[in-house]
Simulated assay, not measured.
Amino acid sequence: MQVTMIDENKYAETMTDVVLPALEQCCEEGWFDPSAAERSAGIEPLSGIMDTGGRSGQLHYLCYDSAKFDAIREQGATATFRGAIVISHGFTEFAEKYDELVWYFLLAGYSVCVLEHRGHGKSARDVDNRCMVWIDDWQRYVADLAGFAETIGQQYAAGMPLNLFCHSMGGGIGAAVLERYPTLFDKAVLSAPMIAPATGMPLGVARVLVGALCGLGFGKKRVFGQSGFTPEFSMEGNEGASEARERWYFKLRCENSEYQTYCAAFEWVRQALKLNRAILNPSACAEVETPVLLFQSGRDIWVLNKPQNHFVQLVKDGGGEANIVRFPESRHEIFSMPNSTYKPYLEKILGFYDDPMIACAAY
């Protein structure tokens, strides 16, 4: 599927003058109460220490209606409704970071639902430090995303396919959802998923070390060497990415204190490692029925590639359908790369979602 990309030389101007006004006309902001989904999964709900407007413990989301978008008659819009896509974002991210991708999905005929995971964006948090992400149990992330997709996501799909797009941490959560809720999604894209985080040491050593630190009371302390958010833009660590896109994301962080999550608590790392072990359980992988397309970044410094390969192979061994598309020169966020990389990446995603033969293979 051919896509017309936003000109990087006019990126901020196009986002401000074209994309954001259109998104505002078809956007619904809401709050999802995850307590029922968490109780169904055997998890006791948390109220959250940050109570905004009486929404204690609730999760913030943004949803975009394809029909309302089509009524705007944006150039390039397909005007053919294809279903809905639920987006599961990455570590320290937020819904508005995905505005450009949402725009492309809307042009292709999909409604889009973006849930902000617990501890991110405007959703409930459980630590005072706004820059730090903490979670008590990785299974809470999974129950929340599944509950959101089963209710809000299905509502926007309106009987048409419900697809999943995940990135990084959101990809690890998404992989676990596919294992535990095998009929929930029609197709799933895992973009540089956190099947295993890059810890700078062997995963077994990291498990022992982080487990010991949490046992000593460091669970809600910031991981050594990580810092809070500072309003100083830099491309360090993102060399080769689109500077226009990186500057736009950074501007959003600077303008919204809720978007300034920037570091991990030790307990978050411990739960990420527990999630890794659960995802790669062969019997869990054998439960996956949803066709999976996994995108891998060759220059990834945040998640490990070999566990992604292992996950795909285990899904195949269990009778599922899963394939890898590798971008050897890409950084972790493929959707933050220049158009020369982003365009073929996006076209492969849309082609995967649109392919009726792959849909048939799921049943």
Rank of each mutant, 00 (worst) to 15 (best):
G211E: 03
H120F: 11
Y345N: 01
Y156N: 02
C63W: 04
A36Q: 07
P338Q: 03
E24R: 15
P197R: 03
D317I: 00
V177W: 03
D33I: 09
E287S: 13
G318F: 02
G159N: 10
T80C: 07
K343Q: 11
Q308P: 13
A244R: 07
V315Y: 00
Y262D: 14
G159V: 05
F224T: 13
P344K: 09
F218V: 10
I324Y: 01
A84C: 09
K97I: 12
S40R: 15
Q271D: 14
T183L: 06
C360P: 01
A359N: 07
G42I: 13
N238R: 14
G76R: 11
V210F: 05
I87L: 13
Y259E: 00
P328T: 04
N9P: 13
G172D: 08
T341Q: 06
A359M: 04
E13N: 15
Y262F: 14
L350S: 05
G119F: 01
Y11C: 07
A149D: 06
L101R: 05
R180Y: 11
W103D: 01
R140W: 01
T16V: 13
S111G: 07
D137G: 06
S47F: 10
Q296E: 11
A41N: 06
F352R: 00
L203M: 11
E243Y: 06
A176F: 02
M132S: 04
P197D: 04
A212E: 12
G200A: 08
N163V: 11
T92Q: 10
S35C: 08
L203Q: 06
S66P: 10
F148K: 02
M194Q: 09
M132V: 07
E74K: 12
W248P: 11
I324H: 03
T14Q: 12
R125G: 05
Q154F: 03
S340F: 06
L190W: 01
T92S: 14
V312S: 00
E236I: 13
E246T: 15
S66Q: 06
M357T: 12
E246F: 14
R125V: 00
Q155I: 03
R82S: 06
C214W: 09
G109T: 03
E329P: 04
V86T: 04
A79V: 07
Q154N: 12
Y98H: 15
N339E: 12
